[in-house]
């Protein structure tokens, strides 16, 4: 009898044990190890020479100018990508929400960059953005506009990286918003028409609140993703020119061999920032998001 009860007690834990083992091994352990590394002056060549230094790595992070530079770059990059992508994909989605063959075609076109590897995209754009022979400057000149230095000037480099990221990501988010728009019952719009609502009012008071869960999801996902941007920077600029496009993750990457403890500490800081930001989003916006 007792044996049976004991079995019943442990069975659920036994059932979830494989999944928990996976989580411990692949999620918890790396995070804890990251925290552990961040407290050490870690020597990759000779583990015995590693030294526990407490929060010294963190103290160093917050006293170094290049950290603040990459932090501000990351913030600007994130704000630019999130705002531009949200606005553009919303506008395009509203335009494409009517089901027609042409719209499906356009939507497929916009989605295509999402299927292509970001490395290939970055390389193609790198080529197009070449100041002397590139396609973009050719177009600008043809239109009688002043050419840009794109990635080669510290003033326009970050903006150029933002442009590529927005271009690559937009199709995916359009897809999500179009699906959200199409799920709104047409009779709600008919009711609004009978309520004498103007188009603008319908958009602000009905459409936007109805798709707010999806917009909020995009906002959170994209903020987290943008804070962790790496591949575009790595391929297109390598953080340059003059650290103009150095972002947090690239900064960590740069320090990976010379000072793994310091890099880990930066990783912890990045994690904290993202957690804090997500928390702030939920606190500020949860009342504006309407789940049904």
């Amino acid at each position: 009898m007792d044996k049976k009860r004991l079995g019943e007690l442990f069975r659920p834990y036994l059932m979830i044990a494989p999944a928990m083992a996976g989580i411990c091994l692949f999620v918890l352990y790396p995070i804890i190890f990251l925290g552990y590394l961040s407290l050490y002056d870690y020597n990759l060549m000779n583990k015995a020479k590693s030294k526990f230094i407490g929060f010294e790595n963190f103290a160093e992070i917050f006293s170094r100018g290049d950290f603040y530079k990459s932090l501000s770059n990351t913030v600007i990059y994130t704000a630019g990508v999130v705002v531009l992508t949200l606005l553009l994909s919303l506008v395009i989605a509203v335009w494409l929400s009517k089901k027609s063959k042409f719209n499906v075609f356009v939507q497929a076109g916009i989605f295509t960059p999402h299927v292509v590897s970001i490395v290939s995209i970055a390389l193609v754009w790198l080529w197009m953005m070449e100041p002397n022979l590139g396609f973009l400057n050719y177009v600008l000149k043809a239109l009688g506009l002043p050419p840009s230095q794109w990635l080669q000037s510290s003033e326009s480099a970050l903006m150029s990286v933002i442009l590529v990221s927005v271009w690559q990501g937009i199709g995916y988010y359009v897809l999500i918003i179009v699906a959200a728009l199409q799920s709104i019952s047409p009779s709600i719009y008919e009711a609004a028409a009978l309520d004498n609502a103007s188009k603008l009012k319908v958009f602000w008071k009905i459409t936007l609140p109805m798709i707010s869960p999806q917009l909020f999801f995009i906002l959170v996902i994209m903020t987290i993703g943008s804070f962790k941007v790496f591949d575009t920077v790595k391929v297109m600029t390598g953080g340059g020119p003059n650290n103009a496009t150095n972002t947090l993750v690239y900064y960590i990457f740069e320090n990976r061999t010379t000072n793994i403890g310091y890099a880990s500490a930066t990783g912890v800081v990045l994690m904290m920032i993202i957690a804090l930001l997500t928390f702030v989003y939920f606190r500020l916006l949860s009342r504006r998001v309407h789940y049904q």
Binding site: S185, S187, I188, E190, A191, A192, L194, K205, I206, P209, M210, S212, H290, Q292
Partner: peptide, 14 residues
């Protein structure tokens, strides 16, 4: 005119 719809068409977010 005012209309009552089969599925009511109430604005769910209001």
């Amino acid at each position: 005119v005012a209309m009552v719809f089969q599925n009511y068409a109430i604005y769910p977010t209001m």
